[in-house]
């Protein structure tokens, strides 16, 4: 079972320099956070989705749709409940509060999708290299990519362990929250121990391959700026400048909203 998000596709986005991809992701975050009104956030979402479509990485949405859906519904409801406005809408929720909830939930989903597109189009090694080229120390970049790599590894281990425990009669789906939490002990203990064990081997393997043997290292992966990078950067800057101008003009907000 392949649990990496990276999709090995030969698209123009995949071929971009990792620094460009990092900038596109951060730019998408900024664009999303500039506005609060859901209609404006939806425009940022549309840009992110176009980015996803060009990079042929939207198929990964299928893998995270449940998280997106839960965050969207729960986020909308909670933020709406914890804010208010002058116009009544449904029950205790006012229209402005609803817009605020919807806008925030959309923001979260948009940022997750932007992050997903980044991970779907950028190899771990590219992330490290991009960060190194931006001045981040190699060890730090490598640690970050290791953390990213551990997620699918732990995922796969937990899957095997849950199959082993289900075979012994463990039923993870019944009972109240506390009972279900307790039922996870047979998963957590072996998962924790085998992760520690494999992390230990990982550490030994790193040392044995000369990790940190020299102050600098060669990068086998070659990256560089090409025309496409400049075009993508120009598009992002071209979106951000008017975006920031509109934000400064106090557009894209929700009039009458009171936050708690």
């Amino acid at each position: 079972m392949d649990t990496y998000l990276y999709l090995d596709r030969n698209t123009i986005v995949h071929r971009l320099d990792p620094r460009t991809k990092i900038f596109l992701m951060v730019g998408s975050f900024v664009m999303t956070l500039l506005f609060m009104h859901p209609a404006w956030v939806a425009m940022a979402l549309a840009v992110v989705l176009i980015h996803g479509a060009v990079s042929k990485s939207l198929s990964n949405l299928k893998r995270i749709w449940w998280i997106l859906f839960m965050l969207f519904t729960m986020g909308t409801i909670l933020w709406a409940l914890f804010s208010s406005g002058p116009t009544p809408f449904v029950g205790p929720i006012e229209w402005e509060a609803f817009l605020f909830g919807l806008g925030n939930a959309l923001r979260i989903d948009t940022m997750i999708i932007a992050g997903m597109i980044f991970l779907s189009t950028t190899k771990n090694e590219e992330i490290v290299l991009g960060m190194v080229k931006l001045g981040v120390p190699y060890r730090f970049g490598f640690a970050l990519s290791t953390a990213l790599r551990l997620v699918p590894t732990i995922n796969a281990t937990v899957y095997t362990i849950s199959q082993a425990q289900r075979s012994r009669g463990l039923d993870l789906d019944s009972g109240n929250a506390i009972v279900r939490l307790k039922k996870n002990i047979p998963l957590v203990v072996p998962a924790f121990l085998s992760t520690i064990r494999s992390t230990n081997v990982f550490g030994m393997a790193l040392d044995s391959k000369g990790f940190g043997a020299r102050p600098t290292r060669t990068n086998y992966m070659r990256v560089g700026f090409h025309t496409a990078d400049w075009v993508f950067l120009a598009i992002m800057v071209g979106l951000l400048i008017p975006g920031i101008y509109l934000w400064a003009m106090k557009l894209g907000r929700i009039p009458g909203l009171t936050k708690f």
Partner: peptide
């Protein structure tokens, strides 16, 4: 546990890169 790159060529290159 000793394979940590995202493709075969990068995995093989990791050691020599460090030197």
């Amino acid at each position: 546990a000793q394979l940590f790159s995202t493709n075969v060529a990068l995995e093989v290159a990791f050691g020599p890169e460090n030197f």
